[in-house]
Amino acid sequence: MGGALLIRILIVEDDAHIAKLLQATLAMVQYESDWCPDGQEALAKIQGESYDLILLDVMLPGMDGFSLMEQIGQGGTPVIFLTARQDVTDKVHGLRLGAEDYIVKPFETVELLARIEVVLRRANKSKSVLRYRDITVDRQEHTVKRGGEPVSLTPKEFEVLAFFIEHQDMALTRERLLSAIWGYEFEGESRTVDIHVQQVRKKMGLKDCLVTIPKLGYRLESGDK
């Protein structure tokens, strides 16, 4: 992948297993990550180094996530709260403090990545040009080229293609694609997904690489391994 921009993410989480899970998940899409299990320590790290995003647990030893958020202040590094607390008031409190998103544990790997992607894009930190073999996707200009030749895609097909390129070698379920591209509220049929995937496959000549995985969904294979 032509990742000229290196994304660095700070994980503030006191549970070692969850931290390891987050690191492994982020590594799948080539994000670099640092782990910090303690609130106080995290504050020092944030002030000392520069990160593109902070994944912040609410219940932390030393200093809880909300206090830490207040210390960081709004407008700095974007923050996503990761918490087991499901209270709506907590969620409102977190977002009011200036967090970009509020993800309740437990979460699915791809959902987490999709939401991180949204926040990074909003902060203009994600790659605007995606490349896959001879395909180039420019998010800003909203253009797709295959071998230098422009290809015409509908907006949804464009999103589907971009989502597959961002999550190569990962099995994406129809539900995941639905909620990532059509929105969380969209209760469409998975047939919609199948039709769009087939269109993308046909238009972009991805017959061999965009494979169907029985009972699971689809996967775009990078062919690196």
């Binding site: 899970l21 987050l22 699915e108 791809v110 294979e221 391994k225």
Partner: peptide, 10 residues
């Protein structure tokens, strides 16, 4: 999370 990682990765 780890089960999901095992599932989605090729």
């Amino acid at each position: 999370g780890f089960a999901d990682l095992l599932r989605v990765q090729k």
